[in-house]
């Protein structure tokens, strides 16, 4: 195993690298361990989905990668640099689109550009925001208020905001979790469209196994709390895909394996052999 802490030299091609991360929250009843020996790495341009039982520490993982928290043990590396705090090369979107009600959709999308140092002129910034809104199908809604948009449209706007500053790493924490099934599938396809035009390295937290294989190149199953990496699957689908590909025998098999792994993580199935 290469020694990543060795000077400035970066010997791995992994853009996101999580090594032996342990973390516990301090509660009134003593420490509550949520992550215990988490391993994960995503190559540049890769898209990794993380699935696992409810409350297993998936959101903690996003906060660690975003530099909003420090792990008790282990290391988080982005682009060959150890994460010690928030970085402007990271974009985030959540299940709650958290749009600011007092701003128009366009101003909401441009919000990160007010924080991140950028060489873009005001006009270029606006042009970029407008371009992204068109890309996700929100042209004509630039001057609307968030309250005038549907849930799916708000999530699209939130997605634009998370990539407007051209982040290298995109962290998506169940962004489609609160949407109805059809809207969700629409947004999956929008995600592929966005990724084709605005490449990023992504981590997607989700509860939806179909979503995980439809969007990601790699699916990581976390065990129940405290979470460790239980299972890693390379997705057989490549590049942009269409919804029909979710209903092939290969996809059914992949989903079955993942379903079983989730059962194991929940403690409802004993071993890998039990499924066979």
């Amino acid at each position: 195993m290469p020694d990543h802490t060795w000077g400035d030299a970066w010997v791995s091609d992994k853009l996101i690298e999580i090594k032996g991360v342990k973390h516990a929250y301090q509660t009134g009843d003593g420490p509550l361990p949520v992550l215990d020996g988490l391993e994960m790495s995503v190559p540049e341009g890769g898209f990794c989905a993380v699935v696992g039982p409810s409350g297993c520490g998936k959101s903690t993982l996003t906060r660690l990668v975003a530099g909003l928290m420090k792990p008790d043990e282990g290391e988080v590396w982005l682009q060959g640099e150890r994460v010690t705090g928030p970085k402007s090369t990271v974009g985030m979107a959540f299940q709650n689109p958290v749009l600011l009600e007092w701003r128009s959709i366009l101003q909401n999308v441009m919000l990160p550009l007010e924080i991140v140092p950028t060489r873009m002129s005001k006009r270029d910034q606006e042009a970029r925001a407008r371009h992204l809104l068109t890309l996700v199908g929100l042209d004509g809604f630039e001057d609307k208020r968030p309250s005038e948009l549907s849930g799916g449209m708000r999530q699209r706007a939130s997605l634009c905001r998370s990539i407007v500053h051209k982040p290298d790493v995109l962290i998506l924490d169940e962004p489609f979790g609160a949407l109805d099934a059809f809207t969700r599938e629409d947004l999956w396809q929008t995600m592929h469209k966005v990724k084709a035009e605005e490449p990023f390295t992504g981590v997607l937290i989700t509860h939806d196994l179909r979503e995980s294989i439809f969007l990601a190149d790699q699916v990581i199953v976390l065990s129940g709390r405290p979470a460790r990496t239980q299972y890693v699957m390379d997705v057989h689908l490549k590049g942009e895909r269409d919804l029909d590909q979710l209903y092939t025998p290969e996809s059914a098999e992949a989903l079955n394996i993942l379903r079983h792994q989730i059962k194991v993580a929940q403690g409802r199935a004993e071993t890998d052999e039990a499924a066979a």
Binding site: P86, L100, L111, P112, E114, I115
Partner: peptide, 23 residues
Amino acid sequence: LEPEYRDILASLGASKLTIFWKI
């Protein structure tokens, strides 16, 4: 204030004052 509101700016390295002022 929902933590996500803080996080969208905090994850970009915004200061507490900026988060207070903008959100």
